[in-house]
Computed example of a mutant assay.
Amino acid sequence: MSRPPRIAAIAALSLAACAAGSARADDMPVIKVEMRDGVILPAVIEVPANTRFKLEISNTGKSPVEFESTELRREKALAAGSTSAIVFRTLDAGTYQVFDDFHPDAKATLVAK
C-alpha cells in the first residue's frame, strides 16, 4: 500500500523539475539573427559571455542558408522562410567568426562580452 503514495511523490517531483527547467529556458536571453540570400544581420552579433543563451536564426531569403562557425563548432542549415535556434551553454568572452556556408561572402562576427 505504500507504493501508490511513492509513485505520486515521484510524479509530483518530475512535474516540478520539468516546470523549473522550462522556467529557466524562458529566462534565457534570446539573440535574433537574420540570414537572407548572402547577408547576415546584424554583422556584429553581441551575446552575453559566461551566460546560457539562445541564438534564434531566421532565414528570410529565397534560398537555403547555413549558419556556421568553425571556432564554435556549431552549424545550422535552414530552408528559405524558416526559423530555428541554437542554445549555447556559455561562451568565454571573445570574438568568433560566423559565416553562411551556402553563401561564402556572407560573414559576421559574434562578440561575447
Rank of each mutant, 00 (worst) to 15 (best):
A43N: 09
A19E: 03
R73P: 01
A19K: 04
K76M: 15
K76S: 06
R24H: 09
L41N: 10
V87K: 09
A43Y: 02
D26T: 06
T109Y: 05
Y96I: 06
V30I: 15
K107L: 13
A49R: 03
P42S: 12
P42L: 09
M28A: 13
L15H: 03
V44P: 01
A9N: 13
L72Y: 01
V47C: 05
E75I: 00
R52P: 03
R73A: 15
R74T: 14
R3V: 15
R73S: 09
P5W: 05
P29C: 10
S84T: 08
L91M: 08
R73D: 07
S58F: 06
G21D: 15
L72N: 01
E56G: 00
K107Q: 15
M28F: 00
A11E: 14
G21I: 02
K107G: 04
R3D: 09
S69R: 05
V44A: 10
F99N: 08
I45P: 04
S58Y: 04
F88D: 03
R6N: 05
R24W: 11
P5I: 15
I7P: 00
G94I: 01
R52T: 12
R3S: 01
T60Q: 03
D37G: 06
L91Y: 03
I86T: 10
A12K: 09
F99W: 03
A12Y: 02
R52V: 04
F88L: 10
V30T: 13
R36Q: 14
V111E: 11
P42V: 12
S82A: 10
S14D: 09
L110Q: 03
T51G: 01
G94M: 00
G61V: 15
A43K: 14
L110K: 00
I40N: 06
S22E: 09
Y96N: 07
I40A: 00
R24Y: 07
G94K: 10
D27H: 06
A19R: 02
D26W: 08
P48E: 03
A77E: 15
T83V: 14
V33W: 13
D100K: 04
A16T: 10
T70Q: 03
S69Q: 07
T109L: 11
G21V: 06
K76I: 13
F53P: 04
L78H: 02
E66S: 06
